[in-house]
Amino acid sequence: MGFKLLSKLLVYLTASIMAIASPLAFSVDSSGEYPTVSEIPVGEVRLYQIADGVWSHIATQSFDGAVYPSNGLIVRDGDELLLIDTAWGAKNTAALLAEIEKQIGLPVTRAVSTHFHDDRVGGVDVLRAAGVATYASPSTRRLAEVEGNEIPTHSLEGLSSSGDAVRFGPVELFYPGAAHSTDNLIVYVPSASVLYGGCAIYELSRTSAGNVADADLAEWPTSIERIQQHYPEAQFVIPGHGLPGGLDLLKHTTNVVKAHTNRSVVE
C-alpha cells in the first residue's frame, strides 16, 4: 500500500471513529477524501466538511520552486461564519470567499490569524475590503508590521502568557507558548472536538522541520505538551499544512522538532 493511500485511509478511519463516538456532533463529509496538494491548482481553494458547521479550507501556493498546501478553518456561528487564517495570499483568499459563498452561503463576518507569517495573514486586506472584521493577538499584529505583512485590524486580548485561553464565538483560542513562531495560536472547536494546530503542528508525513527561522526550538516541545494537557479530548487535529489526523500529530511534531534540534547540535 502506497504512503499517500495509507495517509488518506488514516484520515478516513479517524473521521469514521469520530462519527461513531459522537453521532450528534459529527456529520463528516462523505463526498470524498481530504484534498491534497496535487489536486488543488494554485489560485483555487477546496472546502472539506469535518463536522456539522465545521470545515477546513485548503489552498496551495508556490514557494521556492515548489507547491505547498495550506489549511485553515471555518466555523459556523449562528447565521454567520468565523474564518481562521487566510488562504495564503490575496488571490487565494478572494477564491476562498467565493467558494464559501458557493458552498455554504453564509457571510464571513470575523477572521482570526493564528500567527504573523504570510500563509496566515496574506489576504487580510481582501477580507477587510469584503467587510470582514480581522483579528490577531497584539504580538501577531506587531510582528506582521515588522515583517511588512498585512496586519489584522483588531487585537485579541488575554493571550499574552503561555497557557492563556479565551473564548471567541464558537471557538476557544489558546496560546501554548512559542513553537513554530513566538505568537502562534491554537484554535479548538469544543462542539466538535476539532483542534486546529496551525503551523505549530505537523502532518504525519512530514519528517523535516522546514521553516524554523522564527521558531523557538527549545520551547516548542513544552508548548505541545500544554496543548495535549489542555485538549486531551480532541479527536480531529488539523495541521497548518497537509493531512489531518488525531492527537498523534502532536507527538510526531515533537519528535521531528527534537530530531532537528539534535542534528543542529551535532553539526
Rank of each mutant, 00 (worst) to 15 (best):
S193F: 08
V112H: 04
G163P: 04
Y12V: 10
L10S: 09
S223P: 04
A234E: 02
S223Y: 02
S264F: 06
H252K: 05
V256Y: 02
L81Q: 00
Q61F: 10
G246L: 04
G105Y: 15
L82I: 11
L173H: 04
N255H: 06
T134D: 05
V171L: 09
Y12N: 05
G158W: 10
E33Q: 12
E147Y: 13
L173S: 00
Q235D: 10
A192R: 09
I104E: 00
S160W: 14
S181W: 02
D164M: 06
N255R: 09
F236T: 10
E219G: 11
E233L: 14
S160L: 11
Y196P: 01
V171I: 13
T254C: 14
A234P: 15
A94Q: 14
Q229V: 10
V166K: 09
I224H: 01
H180A: 01
N255D: 13
R110F: 04
W55D: 00
P69V: 08
A136S: 08
L243H: 13
V256K: 04
S7P: 09
D183E: 10
V11S: 10
L185V: 08
A15T: 05
A130W: 09
E33N: 07
P190G: 06
T153A: 12
I20G: 08
L247E: 11
D119H: 01
S113I: 15
L6W: 06
Q235G: 06
S162Y: 07
H252T: 05
R110N: 15
R110M: 05
D216S: 13
I201D: 03
L47H: 02
G177R: 00
S139M: 07
D29Y: 12
T153L: 12
Q49A: 12
D125P: 03
Q103S: 14
T182N: 15
T261S: 13
R128L: 05
V132A: 09
G72I: 00
V54A: 12
V54H: 01
Y188F: 12
G210Q: 06
E99N: 05
I40K: 14
Y196N: 02
P221G: 12
V121E: 01
F63H: 14
G131C: 04
R46D: 15
S161N: 05
V171Y: 01
G177E: 01
G240R: 03
D119T: 01
A144G: 11
Q235K: 05
L10Q: 12
S113G: 10
I201V: 08
D52L: 10
S205T: 05
G210D: 08
D125H: 15
V257Y: 00
L249A: 02
S223F: 03
L243G: 07
Y175S: 04
S31M: 11
A179V: 04
T93Q: 01
G240P: 02
S137P: 05
V126A: 07
A51S: 13
A19L: 11
T140P: 02
S30Y: 15
P239H: 00
V256Q: 06
G78L: 12
G105T: 12
I104K: 00
D118C: 09
K251S: 06
S193I: 04
K8P: 03
V121A: 03
F236C: 08
L156K: 03
S191Y: 06
E99K: 10
G43P: 06
I186F: 06
E39V: 08
V112G: 03
T253I: 04
V42L: 09
G198T: 04
E172A: 05
A209R: 09
G105D: 14
L82H: 04
L13Y: 05
Y202V: 08
D248H: 09
V166C: 05
A136Q: 03
F3L: 06
S191G: 08
P41G: 10
P239E: 01
N255C: 06
L185E: 01
E80T: 14
T36R: 09
V212C: 04
Q235M: 05
K4N: 08
